[in-house]
Design a protein around this nucleic acid. Structure first.
Lengths: 128, 128
DNA sequence: TGCAGTGTACTATGTGTATAATACACTGCA
DNA sequence: TGCAGTGTATTATACACATAGTACACTGCA
């Protein structure tokens, strides 16, 4: 588990939750995998343990992770939940994007060109 | 100027600013156009006049609008600023979207299909 | 000349969030 | 058997934001 770059806009506990959702959605975290302890993740992400606890608590409530006594929390083995996570992330991304370009009435050709540009940028970053 | 649907997540003054940026970007607001007074917009949007004032103040600082004494504020006549507004909205939308789908590794075909779906949804909403 | 509306400014209150500092029961392990 | 680490919980402080309420100088207009 690597670090994370936090923005100052969104609540930190939400960014932590989203980080785990992404790891789950792209398969880096698999059903049953152990995740870092509250204190360890707080050190890793340079945030307060209470903030991590809040994120874990909400992920627990959303049945994304599962905790027994003072054992390491684990990613749920409920496949339906995991599929739902990917679906939600994707749906939110598409909806936000299309609504935005629709509002400012960007021609489809310009949209596609911009998207391709950005994809190429990211691939160059991955290669580095 | 119609009403607005506010979310509870982002600061209201930012949502107000973004609302005006969209109106500028899609041409509904043109250079030199007058915009509602602080108190009038507050009534229209059902928010506090102080919140509107903050939004207008920041738009003033960003040179999006211009105010003289106690006359109605007007959209700037600086075309470069207006072009920049559209550019920023578009750039932000594309970057956020591509970064998100890249993180969860969605195949391009699935992305395009989803985007088309959402576009069709919006067009049906427009027709209604 | 009044008066309503304007932009602007200030104080105060409540809420959500992040942090700091503890605390406690429980577990694995040296 | 200790002890470090675990999940969990509580209290206090600080900050940004939204709101409520008030105030003042200025303007156009009836």
């Amino acid at each position: 588990m690597r670090g994370i770059t936090l923005n100052t806009r969104d609540p930190v506990y939400e960014q932590v939750m989203n980080h785990f959702k992404v790891l789950i959605a792209n398969g880096e975290l698999r059903p049953g995998d152990e995740i870092p302890s509250r204190r360890e993740l707080a050190r890793l992400f340079q945030i307060n343990p209470n903030t991590v606890q809040r994120a874990y608590k909400e992920m627990e409530d959303a049945q994304l992770i599962h905790t027994e006594r003072n054992y390491p929390s684990k990613v749920t083995t409920d496949e339906a939940v995991l599929i739902q996570v990917r679906e939600e992330l994707l749906h939110h991304a598409v909806e936000t994007f299309v609504d935005a370009i629709h509002l400012i009435q960007v021609p489809m050709e310009e949209v596609l060109a911009r998207v391709e540009n950005r994809i190429n940028e990211l691939e160059r970053e991955d290669d580095r």
